[in-house]
Design a protein around this nucleic acid. Structure first.
Lengths: 221, 221
DNA sequence: GAGATTATTTTGACTCGTCAAAATATAGAG
DNA sequence: CTCTATATTTTGACGAGTCAAAATAATCTC
């Protein structure tokens, strides 16, 4: 069994890779995301490499091996099913389930997980719009479009939020950018590193590129 | 927050005290119950003592302080509510829920716990007949009778099973000794350290005193 | 392309929970 | 009451995961 810490590192590497698909994950980003000092990230990544869970080359960065990805997807499956359970069954709020799910994802046996999956009726996505990997570890590979890659005039539907921080989710929520919402990209500002989008019947929202990178979309009518 | 290990030690001390109410818990028993070597139990108990969670005197034994008991009861509440959830809602078997519950009990916030409690309709006992402590940490103090203290001729109803090991629960299950069952004490054998009980319409069951100590009962008709 | 800045890695130290085995205390037998 | 068996505690070690700070590599800036 991988330790909790191992599962967490793999999950974070997986998620960071999603935000920037064609780059290795840097120690700095990983450390920030895990909330540890960079040296800790380096030493943990070396252990993951020793266990063949990641590819790692000093000073260049890290990415998952297929073994590592498989483990990450199992963790993600548990995380997302748990979040769905907490919201749908126990009525917790969209923005506040992350912390509980964060701990519960390491404490649930495969058998229990499958029972929960049946109980929920085999949901395909969690409350944040994230797809729930299947129990064989495979994930529905829908093509991924990032809001940040859109251009002015595009109309897109928000499908997923890649950051589960309460503060970020509240930002999204308050401005009407939940999964399912369709928005028009009003303008993009290379110099200002920002873009402005307008959800229908709502105020336009301007956000930095870093934020826009965390929203996934699909083209809308 | 107490660590997982701390919560586990407190819980085990609580349970061992229940089996033998008027004695301190010995390091040997605690170590066996925690499945660690005795030295580990000693050193952990010293930390619990340092944190004012237990009373401890070298070479004599250990018992909970009121602070320790409060913590133990919170863990027990989570454990028992989780077991109830797993059996009632997710349909897991009576005998197989212990391990999952063992991990989940450390991973659930107070808020989530209260939601689960409501979802389940505020149950008073878990599937093993163990009372679920209230959220304020208090437990319905019903008078405790142990099967082992009964005498031949007594008719008693089994109310609780104090051991959650799969093997023991299967033993109980197969012989028809689940909580709720009424049995007649056929004979007690001081020398053989055994007693024989007969559940209605069933074969008599002979068990050792150590086993009989783990069954709590109440006088029946 | 040389020096300054930033990122990464290394080193040494620390806590937690554990074990093995040695030292010591307690309890039991005669 | 002494000797032996058993229980407990102590000691030294370990792996996991972490931090602080020093050393080193990579990257920018001019």
């Amino acid at each position: 069994m991988p330790s909790q810490a191992t599962e967490d590192y793999l999950k974070h590497i997986f998620q960071l890779t999603l935000e920037n698909p064609h780059q290795l994950v840097s120690m700095g980003d990983l450390a920030e995301s895990m909330e540890v000092v960079p040296g800790t990230a380096t030493s943990m990544v070396k252990k993951l490499h020793r266990d063949k869970l990641v590819h790692y080359e000093a000073y260049s960065g890290v990415k998952l091996t297929s073994k590592g990805r498989k483990t990450a997807l199992r963790v993600l499956r548990r995380h997302r099913l748990v979040e769905t359970l907490l919201v749908e069954t126990f009525g917790l709020d969209w923005a506040e389930v992350h912390e509980d799910a964060e701990r519960l994802e390491h404490a649930i046996s495969d058998k229990l997980m499958e029972r929960i999956d049946s109980f929920l009726g085999h949901p395909l996505t969690d409350p944040h719009g994230d797809p729930i990997p299947a129990s064989d570890g495979e994930m529905p590979t829908t093509k991924i479009h990032r809001l940040v890659d859109g251009v002015a005039g595009d109309k897109v539907t928000i499908t997923r939020i890649l950051d589960q921080e309460q503060a970020f989710l509240r930002f999204i929520d308050e401005r009407g950018l939940r999964p399912g919402t369709t928005v028009r990209i009003e303008q993009t500002d290379d110099v200002g590193d920002a873009m402005t989008v307008r959800p229908s019947r709502r105020q336009p929202v301007t956000m930095g590129r870093a934020a826009a990178r965390k929203l996934l979309v699909e083209p809308a009518g």
